[in-house]
Simulated assay, not measured.
Amino acid sequence: MVRDAHRPIRKVDRLRRRTLSDVARELAMNPRQLNCLLERERCTYREILDEARYALALRLICLTDLSLGQIATVLDYASVSAFTTAANMHDSR
């Protein structure tokens, strides 16, 4: 169980460092090309990142004893309030 709790935290670190250009490079394409593909799917890189952050937040809540404040910090939210606002916005979709 402890190992399971560490996985989402490691994923957060990788997620933070990945830009659209990084992902495009990994896919062997131009960032504009990737952006166009995302537009065709009616989504943005930012939306995908937000979705990933939300999924990681849920895992951290379920698999760790971290407080909401600690999870907000790990996920780079400015405050617990910003984190809960983002979570509520995601849930209302």
Rank of each mutant, 00 (worst) to 15 (best):
L20R: 08
L20V: 09
L20C: 01
S21T: 15
D22G: 06
V23N: 03
V23Y: 00
V23P: 10
R25K: 15
E26H: 04
E26G: 05
A28K: 12
M29H: 00
M29D: 01
M29A: 00
N30V: 09
N30H: 13
P31R: 05
P31F: 06
R32K: 12
R32S: 12
Q33L: 08
Q33P: 00
Q33H: 12
L34F: 00
L34G: 01
N35S: 13
C36G: 06
C36T: 14
C36A: 14
L37A: 10
L38R: 09
L38S: 05
E39K: 15
R40E: 11
E41D: 06
E41T: 02
R42H: 11
C43L: 14
T44A: 01
T44C: 04
T44K: 09
Y45S: 00
R46D: 14
R46H: 12
E47T: 03
E47H: 04
E47D: 05
E47W: 02
D50G: 10
E51P: 00
E51A: 13
A52R: 15
A52T: 08
A52Y: 09
R53K: 11
R53P: 02
R53S: 04
A55M: 10
A55S: 14
L56T: 10
L56Q: 04
A57Y: 02
L58M: 15
L60G: 02
L60E: 05
L60N: 02
L60D: 04
I61E: 07
I61M: 11
C62W: 09
L63H: 08
T64W: 06
T64N: 03
T64L: 05
T64R: 06
D65M: 12
D65C: 06
D65K: 14
D65A: 09
L66Y: 13
L66R: 15
L66T: 07
S67G: 07
S67F: 03
S67M: 07
G69I: 09
G69F: 04
G69P: 04
I71Q: 03
I71L: 02
A72Y: 00
T73G: 05
L75T: 10
L75F: 01
L75N: 02
D76M: 11
D76Q: 14
D76R: 14
Y77Q: 02
S79P: 11
V80M: 05
V80G: 04
V80F: 03
S81E: 14
S81M: 13
